[in-house]
Amino acid sequence: MFTPIASRKAPQLIINQIRGAILQGKIAPGQKLPSSAELTERFGVSKATLREALRALEFLGLIDIRKGAKGGIYASEVDIRVSRDSLINFFHFQNVSVQNLSEVRKVLEPYAAKVAAQRIMDDDIEVLKKINQDCELALANDQHDRISKEMVNFHRVIARCTANPVLIFILTFVEDLLQDTKDLLRPDRRFFQTVVEAHKRIVSALVKRDAEKASVEMYKDVSKVEEYLISMKNDSRFARPKKRHVKAK
């Protein structure tokens, strides 16, 4: 399965071979790989080179290195959180704006609501109702951090109802980026009250399995959130201090 390597880029080539074998199904999740000693011999590399490659594969979530009597190197199914966190770290250096996030949300969130209305189960509707109830209770007690967390869960449940893994991943990722923005701006009670009411209208449409209405209400919700967050970013109270330029003497 694996071939010897002779290159200064040996760690990356090892990663490519093992990753390829896992993604092609030659090694199934949970299956044990050859031992480190065997891999060192097969690849024709040093222990240090193999160790570097295995650490990278473990970081990527493709393998699990276990210790003890049943220890060894095992192929693992990539955790969605690992991939999402890596992307979030990347986009935090890309100056992503509220408008950027909202453009994506306006396309995908209404579509997700429309599909969810056609596929949602009664249990999912009960979950959404419970989230809204928890938000109203938290709002009454001014627990804004709790409301913010529940609002993210609301959108995740709807995304999950689409049964589309690509859509679920993208929307979860976008919601996490948006949550980071909200954590910085710290919206007030009026914002949360507006969103809670919007979410209740979305649930009402989902209960009726009214796909078009669910889509329209979701678009309104996303647009209102965008409008509010942009107004907060433009508010001088939330503006970042400008850098002072010192003239050269």
Rank of each mutant, 00 (worst) to 15 (best):
E52R: 14
K149S: 15
R201P: 02
D142F: 15
P4S: 10
D145V: 10
T181M: 07
V246A: 11
L101C: 04
R201L: 07
G61E: 09
K224C: 02
D235I: 06
L87T: 11
K9S: 11
H144I: 14
H199D: 11
K247T: 12
S102R: 04
H144P: 00
D64G: 03
D235G: 08
D176C: 05
D123H: 11
D145R: 15
E52I: 12
Y111D: 05
A75Q: 04
I15Q: 12
M151L: 14
D124E: 15
L229D: 01
D122E: 15
I14A: 00
K129R: 15
Q179C: 04
I158K: 12
V196R: 04
K182F: 00
M1P: 01
K224V: 08
A163P: 00
E58P: 01
D123M: 12
I22H: 01
Q24W: 00
T162N: 07
F173H: 07
A48I: 07
P11G: 09
K200L: 10
R156V: 08
I15W: 03
A69G: 02
V203C: 10
D122Y: 06
E212P: 04
L33F: 03
L50I: 05
E212S: 13
D79T: 07
V82G: 03
E175V: 06
R55M: 09
P29K: 10
D124T: 13
L139Y: 15
L39Y: 01
G68P: 02
N89E: 14
K9M: 10
L13P: 02
P34F: 00
I65T: 10
F91R: 03
G44T: 06
Q99M: 02
F59H: 12
